[in-house]
């Protein structure tokens, strides 16, 4: 897929779908440098909105795929 985050040095905007997120926190536990959970709102919060470091992107991608409600989207910066 052209939008694969594994493409080297490509930048991705990390977005939380607030209609889907339930604040479960798997994202924070998988990639704490990018995600945290607002316990009051029961909602994930993105600490680094644009990620282009390949190692960090791998973790963000794992968080995106591990999220039980699939509330995380990685949007190529040139498309967002």
């Amino acid at each position: 897929m052209s939008s694969s985050p594994s493409t080297p040095r490509k930048a991705f905007r990390v977005v939380i779908d607030e209609n889907m997120c339930q604040g479960i926190g798997y994202c924070e536990r998988t990639c704490p440098s990018v995600f945290t959970v607002d316990k009051e709102r029961l909602m994930a919060v993105v600490k680094i909105p644009i990620v282009d470091d390949p190692t960090l992107l791998e973790q963000v991608e794992l968080a995106e795929q591990t999220c039980p409600t699939r509330a995380i989207a990685l949007i190529p910066v040139d498309e967002s």
């Binding site: 897929m1 939008s3 694969s4 798997y26 536990r29 998988t30 991608e61 794992l62 795929q65 591990t66 039980p68 699939r70």
Partner: peptide, 15 residues
């Protein structure tokens, strides 16, 4: 559960 979800993550990736 979370570890198993991580293990299966590639099965449900966008790709």
């Amino acid at each position: 559960h979370m570890q198993r979800r991580q293990l299966f993550s590639s099965l449900v990736s966008r790709t």
